[in-house]
Design a protein around this nucleic acid. Sequence first.
DNA 1: AAAATAAAAGACAAAAAACTCTTTTATTTT
DNA 2: AAAATAAAAGAGTTTTTTGTCTTTTATTTT
Lengths: 134, 134
Amino acid sequence: MRSVFFIAHRTASGNRVGIKEISSGIDSPEHFLAKILQDLSRKGIVQSIKGPNGGFYMDATTLARPLSDVVEAVDGKSLFTGCGLGLEYCSETNPCPLHEEFKGIRNRIQQMLQQTTIGEFNEDLNLGITKLKK
Amino acid sequence: MRSVFFIAHRTASGNRVGIKEISSGIDSPEHFLAKILQDLSRKGIVQSIKGPNGGFYMDATTLARPLSDVVEAVDGKSLFTGCGLGLEYCSETNPCPLHEEFKGIRNRIQQMLQQTTIGEFNEDLNLGITKLKK
DNA sequence: AAAATAAAAGACAAAAAACTCTTTTATTTT
DNA sequence: AAAATAAAAGAGTTTTTTGTCTTTTATTTT
């Protein structure tokens, strides 16, 4: 999530950012991050180009995507559909004791993530990129 | 959580329930559960007595506790206080990009867990204890 | 075309979490 | 008091997650 915000911020103006820069920018191990970004790249959340002047970037289309796409790419859909207690049987027709309570909360999380686009953070981040460090 | 509901349900009438019974009742490995319950017992969420006719139980006081106490005993307080993105620096005065959004959601979760007591599930569970299996 | 750059991929290592097994201790029943 | 029962405790194993290192592939600049 933080790396995506970082890339979004740095490349809103069309350029690319290398993995070392991202790594130090968000204070996360380089090779570990690489793996995650490779995955996000395959899933189309971020884009990348190899070679000199290459790096990761995001275009207008990807910047317009909701945060829920990122969460889904990383954690899968179960956050939005699974049971709050992690029970397999639990469903709308066969609810667990906390089903309804969790449903309301989950819907709210989903709404929040669907209504916010990745690109929307760029203004906030101008207060200082440090804000993405741990 | 499921084991606590199970114990609550089985001992509302004053008797005790052994770990084998809980284990098969909620479909969870016996020794693994034992460890968890030992911890919950030390923290006062459930009570126990050794020897024949011993087992785990809960009295009126523990049944009246909110679910938030169980969550806190198992996962610690960070669920209620930590940053939604897991950032260390993030706080009320130095918020991360999603701070406010997460705060609202977290408050709702906390409210839900604080307003519901462990004992409240017993009626629901009379629809069939199977509901606590995976 | 050659050299340099940077991501992609895959194998590997370390740490954490989940789970199991064995022994000990406390309690009760006979 | 002895036998039986059941939780407590602790050591050990397996699996998953997190993180690292090395090699490969693609692209660009000179």
